[in-house]
Structures are given as C-alpha cells and as structure tokens.
Computed example of a mutant assay.
Amino acid sequence: MGGAARFITFEGIDGSGKSTQARRLADDLRAQGREVVLTREPGGSPGAEDIRRLVLEGDPDRWSAETEILLFTAARRDHLEKTIQPALAAGKVVICDRYADSTRVYQGITRGDLRVVVDRLHALMIGREPDLTFVLDMDPGIGLARARGRNGTEERFEDFGEAMQVRMRAGFLDLAQEFATRCRVIDATREADAIAAEIAALTQAALA
C-alpha cells in the first residue's frame, strides 16, 4: 500500500492506555497492508532496553532529574539510530509508545525547571520530532490506579505519587498546545474501541 512514511507517537500520564492504543493502531495499519514498526521508549533497541531497566526500576530517588535527562537522551539516540531512522528510510510507519515529549514533561517540567536543558540536548543529539502525536488524557487518579494495578517491576515513576501525575497531565496538555500542528488530545476515559476508532480516523487523515 502506498503513502509516505510517518512517525507517530503516543503520550500521556501513566495508565492512560498508550501501549494498548499504540498496538491497536499498529494492527489496524498492518491489516490495511502497511509496513509498521511498533516500538517504545525508553527502549526499542538493545542498548536502549538496557538503559530502560536502569531508569524504570529501583527507588524513586535513584537518579536526579539531570541524570535521567542524560540517560533518556542516550537511550533515544540509540533507538533513533538502530530502529526509527532505518524504518522510516524503508518507507515504514513507526509507532512509538512515548518519545521526547515524555522527557520534556517528566524531567523538564515536573521534576524541576529543566525544559531548556531537555530541548538543548534534543536539538543537539536527536533533532527528530514525530509527524503525529496522540496525547491520551484522563484523570490522574484513575491513571495511577490502573498503572499500579499492572503489578510490574517498572513502577519507579508511579511511586512518585498522584501529585506528580497531576503535574504531568498539565504538562502534556500544555505541550499539546505548544505543538498543536502535530498533537491531538484524545479523551482516554472512554471505551477502548471508541478511542481506537478516533485514533484510526485521525491517522488515516494524516497518512492520506
């Protein structure tokens, strides 16, 4: 099937359903005959997955926000080189569960006034923005309860509590306004099928 390559990202607070909706969109596009790479951050390449374990597991105070920015940027650079750029060059659609907007919010806004640092590093080492970003929006208390209900080991950021989730939600909504040409805010409190249908329709319009 034709169509230019597109880089699509999913953002939002913990527990907002990003991974589920990213997977559903990938399945939908593959059913249409498109070649799709479904990936995630931090991670998405062997080196980046190693860094993922460093930043998502352990005590909440394990790393400072400054150290996290460096770790996430290192993981993103490896991901970009090994996974994202080759797939886009091959004409594939890349769907990523989190990307640079998460670093802008988590480390740049909610854990200190470090947005300038995040943006400088991004410009220097990454330099690639998504073509389309879905910001899944929901009540922070509901999202946090969902995230904690997964009972996984990667709960370092959930352990910062609901107050941080509230700041994160505000941060993502502010970013959606800042990058209005590529961001679409999605009401993630609805049934998964309704959310997926809206995302699929918006994606089709972007790929047309």
Rank of each mutant, 00 (worst) to 15 (best):
D59M: 10
P60C: 09
D61M: 06
D61R: 04
R62W: 10
W63V: 01
W63Q: 05
S64N: 13
T67Y: 02
T67I: 07
T67H: 06
E68V: 03
E68Y: 10
F72V: 02
F72S: 02
T73W: 06
T73K: 09
T73F: 11
A74D: 08
A74I: 06
A75C: 08
R76Y: 13
R76A: 07
R77A: 15
D78A: 15
L80H: 08
L80K: 11
L80M: 15
E81R: 14
K82C: 10
I84C: 08
Q85K: 15
Q85I: 14
A87K: 08
A87S: 15
L88W: 05
L88S: 08
A89C: 03
A89D: 10
A89G: 04
A90R: 14
K92N: 09
V94Q: 06
C96G: 07
D97L: 02
Y99A: 02
Y99E: 04
D101Q: 13
D101M: 12
D101R: 12
D101H: 07
S102P: 03
T103E: 02
T103N: 05
T103R: 00
V105P: 02
Q107C: 12
Q107S: 07
G108T: 00
G108D: 03
R111G: 12
G112Y: 13
D113E: 15
D113S: 14
R115M: 14
V116G: 13
V116Y: 04
V117Q: 12
V118I: 10
V118K: 04
D119A: 10
R120P: 00
R120H: 04
R120D: 02
L121D: 05
H122S: 10
H122P: 05
A123I: 00
A123R: 08
M125P: 04
I126V: 15
G127C: 11
G127W: 13
R128P: 01
P130T: 00
P130H: 03
D131H: 00
T133V: 08
D137E: 09
M138Y: 07
M138T: 10
D139R: 01
D139A: 14
P140N: 01
P140W: 01
G141L: 03
I142N: 05
I142T: 14
G143I: 05
L144Y: 03
L144S: 06
L144V: 02
L144C: 00
